[in-house]
Structure formats: C-alpha cells, structure tokens
C-alpha cells in the first residue's frame, strides 16, 4: 500500500513538470512579457521605458531560460523560468500584480471557499443519491418517468439561471437572506445558506440521472435476483446490496473532486461576493493578473492529482476485490 502511494506520488512529478512547462509556454513564450506589459499599460502611447519599468517591477526583465550574464548557478536560477515556474514546486507563488503575496492570499481565501464547497458537496451527494434511489425504487412507473423528465429539464437550464433566479427570488423578493457578502464566524451562515442551496439544486439534474443509471445497471445483475429470491424486502435489497455496489462508480466521480473543493466555485463566489479562491481567480482573470492565474493552474493540477490518488485509495475501502500493488 505504502509502496503504491509512493509510486503514485513519483508518477505525479512528470505530470506536474508537464503542467509547468505548458503554463510556462502559454504565459511566456506564446506571448512575451513585452506583450503583457503593453497589454497592461494600454496598447497605444506606451514607451519602451515604461515597458522596461513594468517588467523590472515584476521580475520579468530576465532571460527566459538561460542567463548568460550571471555567475555560476545564477545562469540557471536568475531566469524567468526558474523564478516564476520552478519555484511553484515549493509553493512559492511570488507576488500578484498589485504587490500582494499570493501564498498569503490563498491561505486567507481558502476558508470561505471551503465553507461553501464542503456543505454543498456533502448535501448535494446526499440529495442526489436519495433522489436516484427513489427513482430506482419506483422504476418503470410514472414517478420514475416524470422524475427523469424533470432531471433532463433541470440539466438543460443554465447554472447562471439558477444563480440569478435564486438570488432574485430569495434575496430580493422574499428578503430572506442578504443578496451577497460574507462575514466570519457564526454570522457566515446567513450568507452561506443561499449559495450552498443553489449549488445543490443546480447539480441535481445531471447527477440524479447519472446515479439512477448506475443503480438500474446494478439492479439488473444476478446477485440482486439472488437477494430477492432469498426473500429480502425490496428496501433491504436496495440499501444493503445495490447501494453498496453502486458506490464504486459513484465514488470515482465524487472522490476526485474532493481536493478541488479548495478551489471554490468561480460562479457562485463571484455572484455572492464571497472572498474565496474562486472569486480570486475570476478577479485575476478580469484584471489579467497572470501571476495569480499561473499559481491557480498549478494548485489546481496538484489537487487534481491528489484527487486521482484518493480515488484509487477509496476503491480499496469500498471494493475488497481491488488490491493496490
């Protein structure tokens, strides 16, 4: 087991190097720092001195890969690639364009992001699995049919509609919760209720339908027929046999996103003014703050790889047939 984990962690290294090279190419080779400076300072009426100053302030004035003017190891380390990309590996993100430390900002914003993402994830999983079980229990009846119709309709609605509509109805018309904002401590509940609810509702359609398919596939299998032949009630069959076995494909989809919960939700956070990582990313995209976007890309891929590893480990927990070597 331990050997497996270590080997998987070693596999992650080339992937992270690949991610790093890709972002480096995107941000520094396809468009040179000069282009970025011109973009930031305005296309017209920009002097070469202003560009030089902009680049020097942010440390973009060094050569890309090899610094011939530096001494010794500085030939490699005093380059954009080393300072901006390699340092990501030790989670040294540098500073954003507004001069703030990105690492500090990320630590500050993680809390609010998790405060929405974790309850939304757990509640969403619970609600969709319950609905799917319900539909599977009443399979091939009108309830099942209209349930599926509802699911297809719900997954055809844009997530923006859920957010805008929910905000309008609950906050503006009914005045139940504040429209947007965030506060620490116990006060946060008021602000979190609606975003959590909306993210759960927005996910119901597609997840319920997907889980229902999984349940129905399991229900058709022979061991279920055996369980029924033993005289077990339909409820017992559903909960003790079908649900357990269906957890394997459900886990594949669910566990992989757990680490990504840290990243928060771009849309929800920006609509509700939650100071989390999602709104941080959106702000960075809108302000074209490449240092922040690059850091978030790197963190995102680290978390994704962690999610894959967690998925594999969770298999051993729910499926005794799986052995990791």
């Amino acid at each position: 087991m331990l050997a497996y984990i270590i080997r998987r962690l070693l596999y992650a290294i080339p992937i992270l190097i690949g991610v790093n090279l890709l972002t480096f190419t995107l941000f520094f080779v396809v468009n040179t720092p000069d282009d970025m400076a011109r973009m930031q300072l305005g296309i017209k009426r920009v002097t070469p001195e202003a560009i030089q100053k902009w680049k020097a302030e942010r440390g973009y004035d060094k050569p890309l890969l090899y610094n011939g003017t530096a001494e010794g190891a500085g030939k490699i380390t005093r380059t954009i690639f080393f300072e901006k990309s390699v340092k990501l590996f030790v989670f040294d993100f540098g500073r954003a364009d507004d001069g703030r430390d990105i690492g500090h900002e990320i630590r500050m914003r993680m809390g609010p992001s998790l405060a929405i993402a974790v309850p939304a994830f757990i509640l969403g999983l619970f609600v969709t699995i319950s609905f799917a079980l319900l539909l599977a229990f009443f399979r091939a009846t009108y309830l099942d049919f209209w349930g599926v119709v509802m699911c297809v309709a719900m997954m055809s609605i844009s997530s923006l509609f859920y957010i805008i509509g929910g905000q309008y109805l609950v906050s503006k018309v009914w005045h139940l919760v504040p429209i947007s904002g965030y506060a620490g401590g116990l006060d946060a509940g008021r602000f979190l209720l609606l975003p959590v609810l909306i993210s759960v509702v927005a996910g119901i359609g597609s997840s319920t339908r997907w889980y229902r398919t999984i349940f129905l596939e399991e229900i058709g299998k022979d061991y279920v027929r055996t369980a029924r032949a033993k005289g077990l009630s339909e409820m017992a069959v559903l909960f003790r046999h079908v649900l357990k076995n269906a957890m394997i494909p459900i886990l594949t989809g669910a566990v992989v996103v757990i680490p990504l919960l840290f990243m928060g939700s771009l849309l929800i956070e920006s609509f509700f003014g939650i100071p989390g990582l999602g709104s941080y990313t959106i702000d960075a995209i809108n302000a074209q703050d490449f240092a922040v976007v690059r850091s978030m890309v790197f963190i995102g891929s680290v978390l994704y790889i962690a999610g894959l590893l967690l998925t594999d480990l969770s298999y051993t927990l729910v499926d005794p047939r799986v052995r990791l070597q």
């Binding site: 995107l26 468009n31 890309v297 995102g300 994704y304």
Partner: peptide, 23 residues
C-alpha cells in the same frame, strides 16, 4: 492536460489569445 482544471486552462489560453489579438 486533464489535470489542469479546464476553466483555468481555458482562461489562460483565452487570455493569451486576447493578448495576441489585441497587440
């Protein structure tokens, strides 16, 4: 490619295209 969250990869690429088009 898969390990980069797709929104961020799209954001990074679109920003780059935008810089290229604008310049």
């Amino acid at each position: 490619l898969n390990s980069i969250p797709s929104v961020l990869l799209i954001a990074a690429s679109v920003l780059m295209v935008q810089v290229a088009i604008d310049t």
